[in-house]
Write a protein that binds this DNA or RNA. Structure first.
Lengths: 332, 332
DNA sequence: GCCCCGATTGTTATCGGTCACATTCATGGG
DNA sequence: CCCATGAATGTGACCGATAACAATCGGGGC
């Protein structure tokens, strides 16, 4: 194929290759002629052959988990966008279970395809650990994990996010804030617990026991029913919006008014959050930015220049979105 | 690399290749020896080289759109799962806009990578049309579209889904059913409108004007406010769950009780649906099955045997999930 | 005017496999 | 006992690009 172009342009195939790869020493007039031929034949170089010969493909592998959840899906999209802009394609492997061998196997599958590098979305502790000890020499970046050994890591600053939520509630006048956590083997869940606890302690408040959820609306619903029984609770910080949604449902069933009786704050800012009853105060994560920084980190690892304008810091700051589900306590 | 294996096993590289590809004429004893060498060297064939030489890669391209929405995300996951099981990898290209040139460009990007075939998730009319007139000779299957020219098409039977929803409401005793549609340039939206209208007409009921939404909770909220003004409405079929969610919010704000005053039915059965206030009656789509059938259709196109146990029919039947948001009208 | 050097361009090997065809060897029919 | 036949295996070309090195050409320094 490249030979057809070469023939049409009256040059050698190597010169065509040079033009395609922006090699400096090609005369302008020659380059022009080649480009005309390329356009005329509607030529597109074969990525496989390129990868084989050049030993670097323009494809990045992504190991993802549960892309039906909002966070992972949004992160994946962010990565894809950033990659496309940088001229890379994306190959994905979704994991069914997020354990050690699964992650390693997935990376191997991608390595087989000679991807230039991989991004591992590994929100579980076990996965992060696996990522930290990859056998292969594939350049890798890890998302939402900070115990991935030497690998560069990008994540939203969950601790700061939790602090935003808790401080907001304390400023409204609540005595303390309860927490419905995510599953404890998720790093994000653990960080949000830490942030919540640290903020309460820093303010000298009582730290109630952690309620354990599993991200699902169902677990929020069940926790909500329990909280509705106790009278004392005035503010709850849920580890994600779906749990908050389930909790709102439980409160509404029990006649607990939000925010008059109890304030609820979520995490994620899913598209639905603004339209719940009542609209949900929550912490927004910028997944697009996460994707961008992942790619930047990976490109750096590959020895390519980082795209301009992308901050380097591995911790993306979240922001608080105040809506009607949080307000001052009745007593205050 | 394959030569290392060959040397270790004491055979030619070609024999190794035969073993790897299940060629029949290899003596069992030889095959065994090769497999041992493969394991010992932890050899994995290079997918690029394979694709280049064999002119067929084990990668399937997926052109997707807005994978943050539940439907596309779930479909993508279903395809990935089915592909992995069949020994294929997945490359994705997400579209920013779903227009003609975007789809064509995306398919070209995938073709460059010599994918074995592509699955196009093209819920918009324009995209479907583009898919129908692809320039390249890449085997393709289209999801959620029936005007993709000669290309095989897999989709959930939206008309049947709408019928389930409307018949359910009519059986409860409602005189007629209003409809909040999705954006009209989405095929799914159009089909749901058609199914809704046809069911009403078949039952000899009055067909109210269509309310136009855009899938977002916001548009559901706004439509809900309008409907709350009119007294006559007793049942609404929303084209998706997010719109239904927004509508529930509007009703709750206006003091319209669900289902006592108005019944609401959604479409999709997102994970949140069961925990809205009230829990949402909705139509469930089996996206996993869609993914499976997509892959089956594509493999068939590629001349590979269809995996056993996968139904061939291009229209996946949806099912009704009845919850508390629908009930008999007050008058009945 | 001659030679050396850098800018251009061409030639050939190579990436890691598969494909097409050649070769070897054991078996069975005439 | 010889040859056709088919199973099992080996040999070299080839997929479509890039890499390494060779060749060619024009210009400046002596």
């Amino acid at each position: 194929m490249i030979k057809d172009v070469a023939r049409l342009a009256g040059v050698s195939h190597q010169t065509v290759s040079r033009v395609l790869n922006d090699h400096p020493s090609v005369r302008d007039e020659t380059r022009e002629r080649v480009l005309v031929a390329v356009k005329q034949l509607n030529y597109r170089p074969n990525a496989l052959a390129r990868g084989l010969a050049g030993r670097r493909s323009r494809v990045i592998g992504v190991v993802s988990f549960d892309t039906i959840l909002h966070g992972p899906a949004a992160t994946l999209l962010g990565i894809e966008r950033a990659a496309r802009r940088a001229g890379y394609g994306i190959s994905i492997v979704a994991l069914e279970r997020l354990d050690r061998s699964g992650v390693i196997e997935a990376v191997n599958r991608l390595a087989e395809q000679s991807v230039a590098g991989v991004v591992i979305i590994a929100p579980l502790l076990t996965a992060a650990a696996a990522a930290g000890s990859l056998p292969t020499g594939v350049p890798a970046v890890v998302v939402e994990s900070d115990l991935a050994g030497d690998l560069p890591t990008i994540s939203v600053d969950q601790v700061a996010g939790a602090r935003l939520a808790v401080e907001h509630l304390l400023e409204l006048g609540h005595e303390t804030v309860w927490h419905l956590s995510g599953p404890k083997d998720w790093l994000e869940a653990r960080d949000r617990i830490d942030g919540w606890r640290a903020t309460l302690e820093a303010a000298g408040r009582r730290v109630p026991p952690v309620l354990a959820g599993d991200w699902s609306p169902k677990s929020g619903y069940e926790a909500g029913r329990q909280l509705a029984e106790r009278g004392e609770v005035t503010a709850v910080f849920c580890a994600n919006d779906q749990q908050a949604l389930g909790m709102l449902r439980a409160f509404s069933e029990r006649g607990v008014r939000v925010p008059e009786d109890v304030s609820v704050v979520g995490f994620d800012d899913i598209p639905e959050a603004a339209y719940l009853s009542p609209p949900l105060t929550t912490v927004r994560q910028d997944f697009d930015e996460v994707g961008r920084r992942c790619l930047a980190a990976l490109l750096e690892l590959l020895g390519v220049d980082r795209p301009p304008g992308v901050a380097r810091h591995p911790r993306v700051p979240p922001s608080l979105v105040v809506r009607a589900s949080s307000g001052p306590p009745r007593a205050a």
